[in-house]
């Protein structure tokens, strides 16, 4: 509460600062700076209330409730919403994350390698996969490969394709996080490990990486949230009733019922996962901030 108050004060201050004279002389209008701040604050509250009232009066509430918050339609989505749609979304996400994690770590080590070609390959990979829309990767894997090589299919079918597409994209972002984490471990750690007779690889595995991964847990958790949402791109590959996921399920049910409630319910299910994860990330970041 306090934080929000002081934030608001700061904004007000910024808004009024432009025309508040820096000297202590009375302003031209004859109002004291304190009076001017009060007026400015009053105007801001007035605008807020006016917009609120306008929305409340102009909106067609019964229609909105009927089309977006329809109880029976929402009830019809259970238990499939959780047993199939959410379950598949989670499988896509976690499988993609696992591939991204391993590949990202390998790419990060290549980026820091003393072998120049490794560095170049990793850099090119990261630049390409960070620069492309994830949708293009999905389409290339889902349609591009089967067209080029008829009969070819990735292991796990849709699951394999989605996991690989998500993993390839996530790896590029995670590689940069891992690299930052490895470089954030003080140089003395490697020196201490080497002075004890550890070989560079051993020192990396036993001493540097455990510390680096701890440092990058917040950004890696953020990446998990992003992947969770990106898994919705699977709809472009044409999923079946068994492999459907949250977004596809929501949109199919919406068309089926000619009612938008399923999209709202699907959206809320995403938030059920992403908001707690977001809170976890903020807690972890605050804890690391305190440690330093």
């Amino acid at each position: 509460m306090d934080g929000r108050r002081s934030g608001l004060d700061a904004v007000t201050h910024l808004l009024t600062m432009a025309d508040t004279p820096i000297s202590a002389e009375p302003a031209r209008s004859g109002l004291s700076p304190r009076k001017r701040r009060q007026i400015s604050l009053g105007v801001q509250y007035a605008v807020f209330v006016a917009v609120l009232v306008a929305v409340a009066m102009l909106a067609d509430w019964p229609k909105i409730a009927e089309n977006f918050f329809n109880g029976p339609v929402a009830a019809g989505m259970f238990p499939t919403l959780f047993t199939v749609a959410l379950k598949n979304t989670l499988i896509f996400t976690l499988a993609g994350y696992a591939i991204g994690f391993v590949l990202g770590l390998v790419l990060a080590l290549m980026r820091l390698s003393s072998v120049a070609p490794y560095r170049v390959v990793a850099l090119v990979y990261i630049e390409i996969f960070r620069g492309l829309p994830a949708l293009i990767i999905f389409l290339l894997l889902g349609f591009g490969l089967p067209i080029a090589f008829p009969g070819f299919s990735l292991p796990g079918d849709v699951y394999g394709t989605v996991a690989l597409a998500l993993g390839l994209v996530a790896a590029a972002y995670m590689a940069e996080s891992f690299r930052a984490g490895i470089q954030a471990v003080p140089k003395g750690q490697m020196e201490a490990a080497r002075s004890l007779g550890m070989k560079p690889t051993r020192a990396m595995i036993s001493i540097i990486l455990p510390q680096a991964i701890r440092i990058v847990i917040p950004p890696l958790t953020n990446e998990l949230i992003l992947l969770f949402k990106d898994s919705s791109l699977v709809f472009t590959l044409g999923v079946t009733a068994a492999t459907t996921e949250l977004t596809k399920f929501g949109s199919d049910t919406t068309i089926d019922q000619a009612n938008s409630t399923p999209l709202i319910v699907a959206g809320a299910t995403y938030l059920l996962i992403t908001i707690p994860l977001g809170i976890v990330v903020r807690r972890l970041e605050a804890r690391q901030g305190r440690k330093r």
Partner: peptide, 20 residues
């Protein structure tokens, strides 16, 4: 070098203990 370092202990100004 790694083999030789096993016979040489080193103590640093900043300790450099492994924090994890």
């Amino acid at each position: 070098i790694d083999a030789a370092r096993r016979h040489v202990g080193m103590v640093f100004q900043q300790f450099n203990l492994f924090p994890h």
